[in-house]
Design a protein around this nucleic acid. Sequence first.
DNA 1: CCGCGATGGTAAAGTGTTTCACCGTGGAGT
DNA 2: ACTCCACGGTGAAACACTTTACCATCGCGG
Lengths: 384, 384
Amino acid sequence: MARSTANPPADASSNGRHGGSDSDRPAPPVANGGSAVANGVEKSGKRVGIRDVAKLAEVSVATVSMVLNHNPKITSATREKVRRVMEDTGYQPNRIAQSLSSKYTRMLAVILPTVRHVLADPYFGELISGICDRAERRGHKVVLEHAKPDWVRDQRHLELFDRRFVDGVLCIGFNDHHGFLEDFRSHGCPMLAVNSEFPQWGVDHVVSDYAGGADQVMTYLFQLGHEKIGMVHGAFEIATARVVCEVFGRRVDEAGLGLDNTWLEDGLFTEIGGAEAAERLLARHPDITAIFAGNDKMALGVMHQLSVMGKRVPDDISVVGYDDLQHAAFVNPALSTVHVPLYEVGVRSADRLIELIRKRTDAVSEVLPTHLKLRGSTAIAPRN
Amino acid sequence: MARSTANPPADASSNGRHGGSDSDRPAPPVANGGSAVANGVEKSGKRVGIRDVAKLAEVSVATVSMVLNHNPKITSATREKVRRVMEDTGYQPNRIAQSLSSKYTRMLAVILPTVRHVLADPYFGELISGICDRAERRGHKVVLEHAKPDWVRDQRHLELFDRRFVDGVLCIGFNDHHGFLEDFRSHGCPMLAVNSEFPQWGVDHVVSDYAGGADQVMTYLFQLGHEKIGMVHGAFEIATARVVCEVFGRRVDEAGLGLDNTWLEDGLFTEIGGAEAAERLLARHPDITAIFAGNDKMALGVMHQLSVMGKRVPDDISVVGYDDLQHAAFVNPALSTVHVPLYEVGVRSADRLIELIRKRTDAVSEVLPTHLKLRGSTAIAPRN
DNA sequence: CCGCGATGGTAAAGTGTTTCACCGTGGAGT
DNA sequence: ACTCCACGGTGAAACACTTTACCATCGCGG
């Protein structure tokens, strides 16, 4: 069931373009193979295959293949000869056939939880953006996958590998209840958790520094003189959300503010959830002067609710978000938040996963820094 | 170069799950083939292939293949026999080999323009969400592709088909300068423009009713008594943006308001562009009472800028957006906008493209309705 | 009783690469 | 002068399916 072990593909492997650009060079020169031959079509109506190239170049099929794969056995002379024919004929290797022979498909899957319209959430979008850009540069394509309930019940996630859809998967947005994440590792399928972590399963991951970000927020709020601080957090099944709450709790305790659990509310990671959490928080603690939300969506909901309830931000209450989504700078007031390098996390994830696939590395656990982004939603605590 | 024509795949084609679920049934029953055999592994360490199944079921390989593909030639008796073996062994057809033999990969590509972090834009996310969900239900996978400048220069877009990456492509967010869109059609490659149209090239498309939406906005603004209305539009190279402007112009003319081109400003489809456009508009026409933005991002920018300039929304100036992105309801004030059924557009696009691939239809030009979503950013025009 | 078509299944030929065992040649080492 | 190895390249066997001839059997009408 697990992928049989085999040599990882050479760094410079065939990816269709004759220049060969597996590494990070932007793109092969490609001298625009514009011979008289109509692009890609031989005199016959048939598509040109490796055999045709071999015939025209007066070499064997194996040789052409080796040129394609940058095999050092080939002289630069013959390599050139073959290259020329490839350009003249507009030959492009059939990637299906390549995958069938070789052990690699050069495809990655991004697996997302089944939340309605999950892709419409810029948090995911930003991560995927980074993943796609980097994957493309390294000659990989990205396919999108949703982890529907029946999907994992039927073991469909392993099907991705068993049926040879992809070489590796990137998982975004899952929590401790998603036990299927463990299966990948136990079946020897390259997998990486993106901006999340699962210490209990030893899953490889690239994550941003949630503890650091939360710490900075607390320091900042204290500097502004806030002592009545509420927290709107996401689900506790998510390790990173837990971390943020823990930091919040620790800092509050250290400062001796005596804030108990009633200052914590679950915002479900959504705008609406954030709004409702804010409502509860305010009902319980009318004297609250600051709210720290676990992500920007909840922060938006909080601000919306505060506005509805006639509270001014930041004059009456300061609000801090987390993520720094693109539109956070354009709401009223502009949101102070923790900048998470989501795009960069995506980029690194793709890099590390590809290395995992090539068995160039085994354990990956990378942390990217976060920092405070101060805007208009925070101010000095109002004096009572 | 063009894909050689061949029979489209039968509606019920092999997609790995033995139940066969090409149609829209949610998922095959899958009686959890839990025999004693360790899932998917035969006694040997080798993966189980179609040959193994044939041997165990005492039929030929061809028969197994036909069972897989729901070929009516097979008796239900033998079909059951084969099915049983498949479940017992946990056999799953290798999709690479299937693609090599058959003419179809069951993959679709979504092609996006090269805008930095384009996926982080919920507009695209929502569309792609719909596309993915429906594609998955119909047994297709979706791969993401960016149309970088060099990509089209090198004819890489056709490579998607030539190298057998995908069966069809969905293009989102392009404009009249992207001539490469024409290539797909001229090479016989199934392609569909999503929520955009290119009458000049006769590209198939699924689009929402931009004219209707704009018309409703204008009617509404007139009802509120607005006469000094500015328009922050997107690039004119985009047909749908043009349509909105045309409607704006027509309605304004019909109403005899005498607003010339100085009431139009380009907002570049971005928040920042919208903000700058609003600034210019206000500098030129301090008496402006309403601004109609071509999308929600620009509307956010407009509102932000108005707030910076000390104008109140909607008391001093009303703002209307277009798209109805998820967070539009949670900004301050909540944005009145045109609801575009982006998710649904994505769904229909996937459906139509798959039909195109199967040659079940040829020309597709579908229009989905839009409607006004009134919230807090609009009000009766202030009396001078 | 013979021929014929429909039925249900089979053997074998693709599908377009990669990879592996092998081979001829030429130069260096002894 | 002879062995031996390195070099550059070749032929053919995988890879795991689909598809297309083709074949045997059987029922039925003439």
